[in-house]
Amino acid sequence: MTTLLELKGLACGYGGRTVLSDIDLSISPGEILCLLGPNGVGKTTLFKTILRLLPPQAGSIHLHGESVAAWPIASFAAKVGYVPQAHTPPFPFSVLDVVSMGRAAHLGAFATPSVKDMKIARQSLEVLDIGHLAHRPYTEISGGERQLALIARALTQQPEILVMDEPTSNLDFGNQVTVLNHIRALTRDSNIAVIMTSHDPNQALSYATRVAAIDRKGSLAIGTPPTVISEAYLFATYGVRTQMLRLPQPDGSVRLLCLPLGGMEGHGLCAAS
């Protein structure tokens, strides 16, 4: 497999403070790389650095083997799309307006989207089965629909990589599954690579092709989900005792699930009820 995005010896942080350092990571087309780690360990800082919203403190970021340090903002955005957590803008733009904003990286500073650009935006909506929302105000649709609209906007950028910040946070159970299934379908059908953060090890076990797990000391373990997500890692990182379950599927494959057990040490969760 070819390498799409590569981080070489990357260090990131704000101002004089380094949060994560010596990160070596690469991602290929069609992969879903899931970034796991406790709150405050630096996932968001790493994302902001990958998206070039923060300058790297050391090391470099490469796309197709080429360093992106000197790339114009728009050329980078044409390759790497960002899906933020669902939010509310100050004005009630229609969903189609929001999604068509994904064309910015392909348009000149004084341009407005053409008929062709609007067609690309509509296709992105159709890919995610939310074409019927096109004319609804973005501020009035549900959280799950908003998350899908933001993914559609990123697809409208026609990127090779999607960077997703906790795409399932604040979504109900049904919407979480819908959004994740769409993400998996995207990587299979259009060979897009996805880097996403998640708080749920089971999501990583079910959907990720690889996992990058940050522990409390800020060091990174990278590998396939079953090798990285272990009872030992979960206990060391979250202080939670878990049991890994192997569930044979009708098609012969085996799915792994992690089940949190009672008896938290020092966390006092779960013991009640």
């Binding site: 902001k48 998206l51 070039r52 919203l53 903002i73 728009a74 980078f76 955005a77 044409a78 790497v80 799309g81 960002y82 933020p84 904003m101 994904g102 910015a104 990286a105 392909h106 500073a109 906007r153 950028q157």
Partner: peptide, 10 residues
């Protein structure tokens, strides 16, 4: 700012 920049706007 962050979102606009990630969408390719200076």
């Amino acid at each position: 700012d962050d979102e606009a920049r990630a969408l390719g706007v200076d």
